[in-house]
Design a binder for these strands. Structure first.
Lengths: 163, 163
DNA sequence: TATTGTTATACTCTATAACTATA
DNA sequence: TATAGTTATAGAGTATAACAATA
């Protein structure tokens, strides 16, 4: 028995009109930026839904991934990696810490900073979440060959490297 | 004399860490969704900047494009095309109307709806904005061949068509 | 002086519910 | 009953400024 991905809830505008726009927004379809935004929007709600059962949001999932990959990372560096403001990192780290998913360790050599680490609970939740995200991506990209997926990722990274 | 695209303002987190993340967020780089979001974020601030001199935002630019392409479109259909809630369309249409970029015509056959149309002022502003967006995209995609751009757009559309 | 973490705050975007007038 | 437009409001997400502790 799987949880249905689209239950009988009323859809939001963002979810509903994924296809509706394809006829009337033709003047915008030639723009890469427009299609990038729409593609992002169309996968976003499903992505969020794939993490709710673990009580994670996209940002908290990403934070967990980065802290797990970079033990003793500081909040400032985490902010930079996530492209978020330091001030907004604080409350998110508070939440992860209060749920015992990460710890804030003091650093003797620089008493201003915290060294963030995932706990064993945080690690196992992260692994579980990774599987959920992989399932979400698998469904999203089922019509894409491995080569196409790779090509897409490389193109998206090239766009980020502009400037 | 061109307007500098990155003036001497302090960068926001979203702008700053376009590249900073490339080292520390490696566990997330395999996910298409993550790269999609980051690519969208990295072009967004520059896209917004490319429209500010015309006092347009991404959404108002898109609305202008859709109304121009679909004369006498209703607010509900505009909302669907833009993937926005009808309630949020109202204030945006208010603004475009107050700036004489569009008109709200009454429809005799159904007195509930408005038929939206661009004014001549709206049309010329839209054309000017289109050129600005094209310049922005040209810079964004200068390393992409026409074939690559086309391929990227088609992949992004395929993602939107899932489900 | 500069940086880390922090707090408070504001602003934008988006979502929801309730209403009116029409159909 | 259902739909178009509207209003008010609430909730995210994100940005800015100022501060204490530390470098």
């Amino acid at each position: 028995m799987e949880t249905p991905l689209h239950a009988n809830k009323k859809k939001t505008a963002a979810q509903d009109s994924q296809l509706a726009g394809l006829s009337t927004d033709s003047p915008l379809r030639g723009f890469v930026g427009y299609n990038l935004k729409r593609a992002y929007m169309s996968l976003h709600s499903d992505f969020v839904a794939s993490l709710t059962h673990l009580d994670l949001k996209p940002t908290t999932f990403s934070a967990l991934a980065i802290i797990n990959e970079n033990p003793d990372i500081s909040q400032t560096d985490l902010a930079r990696a996530l492209a978020m403001e330091r001030s907004n990192i604080v409350v998110m780290v508070d939440e992860l810490q209060s749920r015992d998913l990460i710890v804030r360790n003091k650093v003797p050599t620089d008493r201003r900073v915290y060294a963030l680490r995932t706990t064993s609970k945080g690690i196992s939740l992260f692994h579980e979440a990774s599987l959920a995200v992989q399932r979400h991506e698998e469904k999203l990209l089922e019509d894409f060959s491995p080569e196409e997926r790779d090509l897409l990722v490389r193109m998206l990274i090239r766009i980020q490297q502009v400037r």
